[in-house]
């Protein structure tokens, strides 16, 4: 293989030898206008993707947020919840069994009703939630296999544009960007929500005191 490596690199090097060095400017937006309401924009985008939004933008109290989560579980008949080890205790529901993900198997996750996690940063303009799979979000399988993902988004973690999010977050080992529930447009380009990923995405906006 090392021979192949040299062959490819040599061919590429000689092919691009005479190419002029180029420069370009990055004149695109890196932030929104001050008059744009980032929060309203974010909610609008999420609803457009048919995510469910629970707007507790003023809520600073963990107990009240937990009560709201429990109401969601009851309303949807969700009987068990998997959480990452780093999810604060005060946010964990008490009405249904809660399993902490310390290496749950795929089939264990498959029979769990929902996952409940926090998130790293969100982008209003495209309605995108970025997970960097830190301790409060868990590994990738946790937010993938259960059919419902309840995702907590702190309103201060929402930025206007993708360039702001990229600048704030920096490179991560693994990331998942989520813009709405799983969807497909493969049949006649009709958008259908819910294929292999979580069919339900519930975004809970809050202002929890840390």
């Amino acid at each position: 293989m090392s021979n192949t490596r040299e062959r490819v690199l040599t061919a590429v090097r000689s092919a691009s030898e005479a190419m002029p060095t180029t420069s370009f400017s990055r004149n695109y937006r890196t932030s929104l206008e001050p008059s744009d309401s980032i929060l309203e924009l974010f909610i609008d985008r999420l609803l457009d993707y048919r995510a469910t939004v629970i707007d507790l933008r003023l809520e600073v109290d963990a107990d009240k947020i937990r009560t709201e989560i429990e109401a969601v579980l009851a309303e949807r008949d969700i009987a068990s919840v998997a959480v990452p080890v780093g999810l604060p205790d005060g946010l964990r529901p008490t009405c249904v069994p809660v399993v902490e993900d310390r290496g749950l198997t795929n089939s264990e996750l498959d029979v769990t009703g929902a996952s409940l996690t926090e998130s790293a940063i969100s982008v209003a303009l495209s309605g995108t939630i970025l997970l960097d799979h830190a301790g409060n979000q868990g590994r990738r399988a946790l937010t993938l296999i259960p059919d419902t993902h309840i995702c907590l988004v702190h309103i201060e973690s929402i930025v206007g544009t993708l360039p702001e999010a990229i600048a704030k977050l920096g490179p991560r080992k693994v990331m998942t960007w989520i813009s709405g529930p799983s969807a497909t447009s493969d049949i006649e380009l009709v958008r259908v929500e819910g294929v292999h990923g979580p069919r339900n995405l519930i975004v809970l906006l809050h202002a929890l005191n840390s």
Binding site: S126, R139, A141, K173, V174, M175, T176, W177, G180, G197
Partner: peptide, 24 residues
């Protein structure tokens, strides 16, 4: 995504860098 499916963002993007411990 805007050029491709005409969405503001595609539902899922996965980014991985080599192997991650206990993940993937």
């Amino acid at each position: 995504p805007r050029s491709s499916t005409g969405e503001r963002m595609n539902p899922y993007t996965t980014i991985w860098t080599g192997t991650a411990e206990h993940d993937g």
